[in-house]
Design a protein around this nucleic acid. Sequence first.
DNA 1: TTCCTACTTGAGACTGGGTCGCAGCTAAGA
DNA 2: TCTTAGCTGCGACCCAGTCTCAAGTAGGAA
Lengths: 158, 158
Amino acid sequence: MHIETLEVERRLQNFRALAKKAGVKLTHQRLEIFRTVASSLEHPNAEAIHRAVRETTSTLSLDTVYRTLWMLTNLGLLTTLGMRQDSIRFDANVENHHHYICERCGLVRDFEGDELEALRIPDSVSRFGQVVSARVEVRGVCVHCTEEPEKGTSSRRL
Amino acid sequence: MHIETLEVERRLQNFRALAKKAGVKLTHQRLEIFRTVASSLEHPNAEAIHRAVRETTSTLSLDTVYRTLWMLTNLGLLTTLGMRQDSIRFDANVENHHHYICERCGLVRDFEGDELEALRIPDSVSRFGQVVSARVEVRGVCVHCTEEPEKGTSSRRL
DNA sequence: TTCCTACTTGAGACTGGGTCGCAGCTAAGA
DNA sequence: TCTTAGCTGCGACCCAGTCTCAAGTAGGAA
């Protein structure tokens, strides 16, 4: 399963433009890494990307893959899935509910909402498989972090 | 910030009942670990729980915390946040979209939906902070895994 | 109440994803 | 072509989470 070549080319052009604007060098490694992610539907992890790019660029180091992925994420060309921030978190609220996540400090809070209860999942989703649950994940910057002058935020991991 | 004592007691009673039914021993460690998670709004990680329980049970090992948390999760008394499954995944689709995630193999697919575009986030959420984005995360079992006889699924990590 | 044993625990070693520091390399502007 | 700031690969490192195993204990049986 792949993205159409045209869309991939559009994304690559976008990368070239943004890289220039941001003063970031366009290396062979970076182009290949971005091309790999941009043409995949799999939401690959660093390991998988490394494996794929190595087929054509045999000396690529895993570390470069990570550095490039974070750089691309910071440029807004990629997003990451699930919680950034540290480790697995546990929740004793097993009723259906949703989460508010602070992108800066990682704070998580539950919330509920009547309209959200009855979330209408598009029929097209059924082609992927059966549905067990649906949750809304709201991201933002929490009250505390909004007041606080930015600090303790690694620039690497947005 | 804490859950009301009454609710915590109810959850503890529930644990005692389920533990008996499942033939799981009720140790001091397990009760304290569950009490800690059940009375927190913070969605703590294993590290934080370990630190908290150590204040009263000084010899508790981190490993016991992990084992207990997974056991509680398997009993349906806890849930985990974000992607279970391995490592960070990257996505070159930065437009607003939603995810379907297979709980068994970790497959992830994007989808969109007009009704979902206009998700009405409850006003109450604004007390946590400002909202940047809202995504729906649908979980289920993908077509491929539904056909496949169950395999390669660690019982520990549901 | 005591006994018994299968289930738990703690400790320490281990695994694997991810990061750091540094010396050598290279894109790209002058 | 020259220059150099920014990049890369490498090896060492860090740390969350897991495994193994000997010692400890919950809780049913007697």
